[in-house]
């Protein structure tokens, strides 16, 4: 934020989007406002408040669990339907990011809107197969993984949809951090299905490499159709260590991250062994 000259309270999503469109890069939507305050963008002069746009609800329909863009991490972590979804991994994550005060502020729309390379929420939602509801010139629904690649400035995020077909699969999350509040040195999220002790479905995502979220279908393919055994996940770990692009930064070296990539698959194997039993 630079010098803010206007705080605009949008009365509807149409109103919010029209305002953003008319101002271009001089306007920003407000989720929890955490990131907007922390990293002020000198271009932004108008803030568009979304709290009156009806985006603060969690609703379960026949097809999906819908989380409005204004829903906070704290609300996600406490919601019974989210706790029951894919073993409760998203509820756990939302209840352990940053700290309690910030979890009452950070919104799902703001987390996706900012999507830092070390962000934990976006990779986990992508692993769970989330779709994003957006409004640009029309309302649309698209896979979140596509949205983060193709996003146009000014697009309003209305919320995310977690498909109920994935609700009984197992969500896995491994954030490697130095302290609980630290940002991830490496993030691995997965969604795994098991039938009769064989992996029937797999989605594997790595982030914080230090680059952003990437899906690894090649690693997932090493798991599908194989027994839920330590060797299966050790082998997938070797494939992942080859496939996942890692780099150096001040917080960890690329070679250390490569070991973490492998270790994440071992952890996943240990967790799935418990689930299969």
């Amino acid at each position: 934020m630079g010098v803010i000259t206007e705080y605009y309270r949008a009365t509807s999503c149409d109103d919010a989007h029209a305002k953003a469109k008319s101002l271009g890069s001089a306007a920003a939507y407000v989720g929890g406002g955490v990131e907007l305050v922390l990293r002020r963008n000198p271009e932004v002069a108008t803030l568009i408040d979304l709290s009156r746009c009806g985006l603060g609800r969690i609703v379960k329909t026949a097809e999906a669990l819908s989380l409005g863009a204004q829903v906070t991490l704290a609300a996600i972590s406490r919601n019974g339907d989210v706790k029951a979804y894919a073993g409760g991994s998203l509820a756990y994550l939302a209840g352990h990011i940053a700290h309690n005060n910030l979890r009452n502020m950070i919104t799902i729309g703001g987390a996706i809107g900012r999507n830092q390379p070390w962000n934990d929420i976006v990779p986990h939602l992508i692993a769970l197969g989330a779709y994003v509801e957006i409004q640009d010139d029309q309302e649309r629904v698209m896979p979140l993984s596509d949205f983060i690649r193709q996003r146009e400035p000014g697009t309003l995020i209305l919320g995310v949809r977690l498909p109920l077909v994935n609700a009984d699969l197992h969500g896995f999350l491994w954030r490697f951090t130095r302290t609980q509040q630290d940002i991830s040195l490496l993030h691995c999220s997965a969604l795994i299905g098991v039938q009769e002790s064989v992996v029937s479905a797999a989605t594997i995502v790595y982030a914080g490499r230090p680059g952003g979220t990437v899906l690894y279908p090649k690693v997932a393919a090493e798991l599908i159709g194989r027994p839920v055994k330590a060797e299966t996940f050790l082998h997938a770990g070797d494939v992942a260590a080859q496939a996942v692009e890692v780099g150096d930064d001040l917080r960890a070296s690329g070679s250390y991250r490569r070991e973490l990539v492998r270790a994440a698959m071992v952890r996943l194997g240990e967790e799935m062994a418990g689930v299969a039993q």
Binding site: Y7, V30, G33, V34, L36, V37, L38, L47, D49, S51, A74, A98, H99, N100, N101, L102, N104, M105, Q181
Partner: peptide, 26 residues
Amino acid sequence: HTGDCGACTVLLDGKPVASCLMLAAK
């Protein structure tokens, strides 16, 4: 002033928030 330390905690409608990262207009 970066939302890390908690010294600025206040309750907003009964819920704790970091007032150093909260827009007053909100």
